[in-house]
Design a protein around this nucleic acid. Structure first.
Ligand SMILES: [Mn+2]
Ligand SMILES: [Mn+2]
Ligand SMILES: [Zn+2]
Ligand SMILES: [Zn+2]
Lengths: 143, 143
DNA sequence: ATGAAAATGAAAGTTAATATCATTTAAGGA
DNA sequence: TCCTTAAATGATATTAACTTTCATTTTCAT
């Protein structure tokens, strides 16, 4: 989805909930939609403050919470103690592999693993709603 | 491994590092070795204080850190904001499925998934050192 | 334009983890 | 057994990320 379309989705979500539009939130969202990393609130705040220095941390926090609610952002925790956000991926769900030396993050999709997860759960009588799969190891540069 | 053997492993780790034995640490470790759940520091502290009411949180914290270091305990984070510890499993590594309604935790082993993880990483040039796989969904009672 | 309701930003509060520090304790050697 | 010294303890303080509060500002339907 293009950033412009994402803005439209956000607008309708805001309308549907009876919320109001603000320049701060729009700018934070636009800035986030342009990212293609796994960005922390502090990082996003810095980015946003380059153009709009008086935006507050709480507004960035609340905006990302809103984007997560309406599915445009995904919150991730890679174990470094900070929540990171990424844009809803074009091509569906993916999982992550993180370099334990340089913190590089790579993404992968693996339908077989997904299927085996569902089966493993079924054996225990569980139904899977979501999951978290993170591999930790060394990237090509750090191996 | 029996609790008694675990105590022996802990003793040798303590000796090797030039640390000293204490009754508090021994009792915390013994208490932990008897658990078969995924226990938080607060829960373990309560358990310990039933017999030894004056043991401090910090000592439990430091003991579990030590047990993690010497491989007798595994620290887990299931996304509820608290670190939980479990005994080193008899039968090797396992992953978890957590009920999003009642918080029940089930465990499973799946060599196929493990193998596919390694292969997925390899395709990206990564080598896997460890991983985290958690399924979230509904348990049989909550489905 | 007006007024109700939402949004903002600064500041305060929360919570789990971690560090500090005065005091106590363990353990090897005199 | 008595010292000595380094480690352990427990109370308390600090940290860090998140979350809430609140006075003020802004939006937007009327
Ligand atoms: Mn990603
Ligand atoms: Mn387990
Ligand atoms: Zn790397
Ligand atoms: Zn359940």
């Amino acid at each position: 989805m293009q950033p412009a379309n994402k803005m439209a989705v956000l607008k309708s979500f805001i309308d549907a909930k009876g919320l109001k539009s603000t320049s701060q939130r729009d700018f934070i969202a636009e800035t986030f939609f342009k990212t293609n990393t796994h960005i922390s609130l502090d990082e996003l705040l810095s980015k946003v403050r380059k153009k709009t220095p008086n935006i507050g941390y709480a507004t960035v926090y609340r905006t990302m919470k809103l984007l997560s609610e309406c599915g445009l952002a995904i919150a991730r925790q890679f174990g470094d103690g900070q929540t990171r956000y990424e844009n809803l991926p074009e091509d569906g769900h993916h999982d992550h592999i993180i370099c334990i030396k340089c913190a590089k993050i790579a993404e992968f999709q693996n339908p077989k693993i997904e299927q085996l997860q569902i089966e493993a759960a079924k054996k225990l009588g569980f139904t899977v709603v979501n999951h978290k799969l993170e591999l930790y190891g060394y990237c090509p540069d750090c191996a």
